[in-house]
Simulated scan of single mutants.
Amino acid sequence: MKGVLLVNLGSPKSPTPEDVKPYLDEFLMDKYVIDVPFLLRALLVRGIILRKRPKESAHAYQQIWWDEGSPLIVISERMHKKVNKKVELPVSLAMRYGQPSIETGLQELADKGVTEVLLFPLYPQYAMASTLTILKLAEEIRAKKFPNMTITDVPAFYDKPDYIKVLANSIKSSLEGYNYDHLLFSYHGIPERHIRKTDVTKSHCKIDGSCCVTPSPAHKFCYRHQCYETTRLVVKELGIPEDKYSLTFQSRLSGDKWLEPYTDIEVNKMPEKGIKNLAVVTPAFVSDCLETLEEIAMRANEDFKEHGGENFMAIPCLNDSDPWIDVVVNWINEWAHAEKPVA
């Protein structure tokens, strides 16, 4: 019997330092997120970051927390319910960090007699700190707890035509009636070394401005290439002039070289360049979360206006919109009725 496990990032139980701390500990102690030896990672996370970050992050979560709970969890649950109603297969929901866990999701499917699972990481672009960590943990749990279960994963869908179409239409709909000067594609940042670590050729990825547009097997696992490709395809679909959009990366940690250009720095420069009406879309996420609602819709908005900007629009993620749900349902049905994995 086949079944589906949708997996998103996760969230603290509540926007309090007491609940944010264990969530951050689980997240930042993941070797695919902070990819340094365990002792150094523990020293950095538990000896330094967790001394201040839980209080700061709790304050940020408090700014965006909904009455129903964490926006990411609530949106994921809504998506899960809609998908569940449209497919005949059992569908469960899990989070990489926090609850419900991946083990809980797999157990829920196993209890319904599922032996073949379509693992669906809700990330358009592939990255160590998102897709890979989900795949690795799911396989570890499967081998230990569910040895008779098989798992097929949905590959990064950054360039799938139906995803590009629904993303472009969502952006177009949001921009109706808004006379924007510039559209910014802001993607979650990752350390540059992650790009090199996921380079299957061990030589292609140089982050030099040309490697991402030079065909290579490395692109299957290159987050940077996939971000640029998503942007290129959406811009082409919408017919946006080259001088009216740009791409940046947000949410960096200090101490490492992360993908550039940085969202906050670029946003602050825009008003002096004559960009007074800015729209920002965040295609690294399919669900609105702390990084989109607080970092972009609140902080970037405020910074933009403090530097002379006039109007700022944060374009919502796809969330549980019906067109996006239909795309997800179609992919699931393709897998359910095919002998081979989703391509």
Rank of each mutant, 00 (worst) to 15 (best):
G3M: 10
V7F: 02
L9V: 14
G10M: 06
P12F: 10
S14M: 10
T16S: 12
P17Q: 12
K21L: 12
P22A: 00
L24K: 13
F27R: 04
K31V: 11
V33W: 05
L40K: 04
V45R: 01
R46M: 04
I49H: 04
R51G: 00
E56K: 08
A58I: 04
Q62C: 01
W66Q: 13
E68L: 03
G69P: 04
I73C: 00
I75T: 10
I75C: 06
S76V: 10
E77C: 04
E77T: 08
R78C: 11
K82T: 05
V83M: 09
N84E: 14
K85T: 07
K86A: 05
V87Q: 02
L89G: 02
P90D: 02
R96A: 05
Y97F: 14
Q99W: 12
P100Q: 13
S101A: 10
T104Y: 15
Q107S: 13
E108L: 08
E108D: 12
G113D: 09
E116Y: 05
P121V: 11
Q125G: 13
L137S: 00
M149K: 05
I151A: 07
I151V: 14
V154D: 01
A156R: 08
K160Q: 14
Y163M: 12
I164R: 09
K165E: 15
A168H: 07
K172A: 12
Y178G: 01
N179V: 02
N179K: 09
D181A: 11
S186F: 06
I190Q: 05
R193V: 12
H194E: 08
I195W: 04
K197E: 13
D199W: 10
D199A: 07
T201K: 05
C205L: 08
K206W: 03
G209P: 06
T214P: 10
S216V: 13
A218K: 01
K220R: 14
K220L: 12
F221L: 09
Y223I: 12
H225P: 00
E237L: 03
L238P: 03
D243C: 04
D243E: 15
K244I: 09
T248H: 00
F249Q: 00
S254Y: 00
G255A: 05
K257H: 13
P261T: 06
P261H: 10
Y262H: 08
Y262K: 01
I265V: 15
P271K: 12
G274S: 08
I275C: 09
K276F: 03
A284L: 10
F285M: 09
S287Y: 00
S287Q: 03
D288Q: 07
I296A: 07
M298N: 06
A300L: 12
A300W: 01
A300Q: 15
K305F: 08
K305R: 15
E306V: 02
H307G: 01
E310V: 13
F312E: 11
M313V: 15
A314T: 15
C317D: 06
N319K: 07
N319T: 08
D320S: 15
D322K: 09
N330V: 06
E334C: 01
E339D: 14
A343L: 08
